[in-house]
Design a protein around this nucleic acid. Structure first.
Length: 758
DNA sequence: CCAGTACTTAGGTTG
DNA sequence: TAAGTACTGG
């Protein structure tokens, strides 16, 4: 197969430019991944050594997908030799190799957000600061953005502007917290997510020989989603690319949705400054979505002022208009969407995989879960609490971490008294204080009690010693037992298994916890067995793999037939035939927190653009006029984003509220009106959920179909309608296709053209 | 030290 | 609402 034939002209050009800097601005659905994968394949086929290629993505999923596609063209072993992965995972490997240069152990722990926040909480308490003024989330965000801008704690303290800002905000001690945090991470041999970037930059700027080595090794660089890179990422890439300038970045400014974690759109705009002789390619043809969807999305994004000019267009069929649905409450919204999915599936849609529900915030998933469960529709929630974040899993992993890196403070605190061994807060506090006073790790204190006066009573000291002995016994097995064997030993001897087994009769949650532990051990076994290289796989090797995994990576093959529920953020890069963008309400989407600045609001708008452009053949928007929030019902008005779409591309399934939706609040406070209103419609829904639309207005785009008519179907070609069933939204047609036999199609989704007879 | 209970408080998106 | 913290008595 010659894959170059599968590309259009504007895709082919960047694929065939191997050397020199190039930037590809790729509109939504324009085949960006295809360009990246084919480009890498093309490079390898033209003699580039895959070991010389670094390809960076933002999600593991994107990396995995690309890797698989490349492997299918150039073969497994070639594909495996490419350094392809997320920034975090590729950089963490570089850091492992060179950790001694920057004073970290090679088996450094990676702190996840939970770990970082828990440490910060501890530090704020330890410095006797008011935890109301110093909210952990805020402090964490502040430090994170400092690191993303390559400011160390010392640089932070010396930066007058920042110090002034903190003073204004009545948080003058922030730089002290940052400093303490930096120290304690280092004492623990731990890096947080931001350190993986920050320290990579330190490594490359402090050690010219290391930089030189990686410039030579990675002489071909590719960066996906370039619009989402932050300053640290930008500078690292720039350094690596400096020797050869073989750098290809791909991005779409219209899909930049990560400024909250430091993404800087200027990186795209600066590309021409850094590489003046670069080539710019634009991919503007959308292959994914129907015309109505593309145009609706275009009409949204045109409301943004800051953007690179491009015209996204498509050759695809017109398709259905984007429909808009109103629900009266968040629960009803769930029901309506679930029923829609139920009906479409009933009408011949192949698989539940074709459906996605996209929302702004994770907590919105609840009503959809409930409604889908009631209809027995399989679903999967992406994001949210991942497998590796569960308490029981984190507990066991903490033992693993402590075994490979005993200085890991967060792991230590987590398991010192779990399962309970009568080493509670008092003891923990004493150890922490001693560690801070002596500037050593918690483990240093307990493993050398004779060197530090701890003032523990005899029996407590004895129990601490037992704990130390146990961890040491695990460590002794590190080189002898493989990951699975040692993992199982730890699970048993730490007492975790006994603990969970003892609770198993308490209820389903406890059973699940036990099963999760079993699943983790199963994962260890797989990790050892499936590798195939025959190399010895230790527990440390496992931890390296696991630290950067997210929920989206734990997909198992059996449950492939499900509706996907996820935030719009995590839907980026994905596509689905049927997309439901839900919760389109003011203060939710756009988020309340985005309303005070234009740039934030524009980012919300880009997010909306991303959401709509996930859809291939149909997109539905929904909103609820009341929503259960923080224990009470809040009334809400439809999002401004709905109004911003050119109405030509919209179709309102439920009538728009009259008299201006913006006055909903006063209306909601009138109980007699709102109750009456609510009862009427919701009882209608409850009584006949599966034909709920019989009283809603007809669909404006509906064509008049009749039995006996000849039509053309997008996929099946010519056919004749033999039967019509149902009404309006549910209307189905039984059609005989000479080439494909008889099919039942839902008229709402099928793309049929009527052949006029004369 | 620990378990049970009363009270507070968050509220966005991710690797 | 739900999760996390503070307090109290055994």
């Amino acid at each position: 197969m010659n894959y170059l034939d599968e590309l259009n002209e504007s895709q082919r050009l960047p694929v065939q430019q191997i050397d020199g800097p190039l930037m590809v601005i790729a509109g939504a659905g324009s085949g960006k991944t295809r360009v990246l994968t084919y480009r890498i394949a093309y490079m390898i086929e033209n003699g580039i050594d895959p070991f010389n290629i670094m390809a960076l993505t933002f999600t593991n999923k994107a990396a995995k997908e690309m890797s698989e596609r490349i492997a299918s063209i150039v073969g497994d072993s070639e594909a495996r030799s490419i350094s392809m992965g997320t920034f975090h995972s590729v950089f963490s490997r570089i850091l492992r190799y060179n950790s001694d240069r920057i004073g970290y152990p090679s088996n450094f722990t990676i702190y996840d957000t939970q770990d970082s926040k828990s440490l910060l909480k501890d530090i704020i308490k330890g410095l006797n600061l008011d935890d109301k003024a110093y909210k952990v989330n805020h402090v964490y965000g502040r430090i994170s953005s400092a690191k993303n801008n390559l400011l160390s704690a010392d640089a932070y303290a010396q930066n007058e502007e920042i110090v002034w800002e903190d003073k204004q905000a009545k948080r003058p001690e922030l730089s002290r917290i940052y400093k303490a945090y930096e120290n304690r991470c280092r004492k623990s041999g731990a890096m947080d997510f931001d350190d993986l970037l920050f320290q990579t930059h330190v490594l490359l700027s402090k050690f010219p020989d290391v930089l030189h080595y990686y410039q030579q090794k990675y002489r071909y660089l590719l960066v996906d989603e370039y619009q989402d890179t932050n300053y640290a990422q930008y500078l690292i890439i720039k350094k690596l690319a400096a020797a050869y300038e073989n750098i290809c970045v791909v991005g779409d400014d219209a899909q930049s949705i990560y400024s909250f974690r430091g993404a800087n759109i200027k990186n795209i705009l600066n590309f021409k400054v850094d590489y003046p002789d670069f080539n710019l390619y634009k991919l503007e043809q959308n292959y994914r979505s129907s015309k109505n969807i593309v145009e609706a999305a275009n009409s949204i994004i045109s409301k943004n002022k800051d953007q690179i000019h491009k015209v996204v267009w498509t050759d695809n069929t017109e398709g259905n208009k984007v429909s808009v649905v109103r629900a009266l409450s968040d629960n009803e919204e769930g029901k309506i969407i679930a029923h829609k999915i139920y009906r479409s599936k009933e009408n011949g849609i192949e698989s539940f995989n074709d459906f996605a529900v996209l929302y702004r915030t994770n907590r919105q998933s609840r009503s959809f879960e409930e409604a889908l469960r009631k209809l027995n529709i399989p679903y999967r929630i992406y994001g949210g609490i991942s497998f590796y974040q569960r308490k029981e899993i984190k507990d066991l992993l903490a033992y693993f971490r402590l075994t490979t890196n005993p200085n890991d403070e967060e792991a230590f605190k987590r398991v010192l008294n779990y399962p309970r061994r009568a080493l509670g807060n008092t003891t923990k506090e004493k150890i922490i204080i001693a560690a801070n006073q002596n500037g050593v790790s918690l483990w240093d204190i307990v493993s050398n009690p004779e060197n530090y006066s701890l003032a523990l009573n005899k029996p407590t000291q004895g129990r601490v010693n037992d704990f130390v002995t146990m961890i040491k016994s695990f460590q002794a097995e590190l080189g002898k037992l493989n990951a699975f064997e040692l993992g199982e030993t730890i699970a048993k001897e730490s007492g975790i298994i006994r603990e969970l087994k003892g609770e198993i009769d308490k209820g389903p949650e406890e059973i699940e916890r036990f099963q999760n532990i079993e699943e983790l051990l199963g994962g260890l076994q797989e990790f050892v067995d499936l590798d195939g290289s025959g190399d010895f796989k230790s527990l440390s090797d496992f931890l390296l793999e696991v630290a950067l995994l997210t929920d989206a990576d734990t997909e198992n093959k059996e449950d492939r037939n499900h509706v996907s529920l996820m935030t719009i953020h995590s839907s980026k890069g994905l596509e689905f035939p049927f997309v439901y963008v839900v919760g389109l309400e003011e203060n939710l989407f756009p988020s309340q927190l985005s309303l005070h600045s234009r740039s934030d609001l524009e980012e919300e708008r880009r997010l909306f653009y991303v959401a709509i452009t996930r859809a291939k053949s149909a997109c539905t928007l929904s909103y609820a006029s009341s929503r259960f929030t923080w224990g009470q019902v809040i009334s809400s008005e439809p999002s401004r984003f709905i109004d911003e779409i050119n109405p030509k591309f919209l179709e309102f399934e439920t009538p728009k509220l009259r008299g201006g939706g913006r006055s909903l609040k006063s209306r909601g406070s009138n109980p007699s009106f709102s109750n009456k209103f609510q009862n009427k419609v919701s009882s209608n829904r409850n009584l006949k959920p599966l034909s709920a639309s019989s009283k809603t207005p007809t669909y404006s785009s509906e064509k008049e179909f009749m039995v006996g008519q000849n039509i053309i179907h997008e996929r099946f070609g010519k056919g004749k309608i033999t039967k019509l069933n149902g009404f309006e939204a549910d209307q189905k047609a039984v059609i005989f296709f000479p080439n494909h036999g008889t099919k039942t199609v839902l008229l709402r989704f099928a793309k049929l053209t009527i052949i006029k007879e004369k």
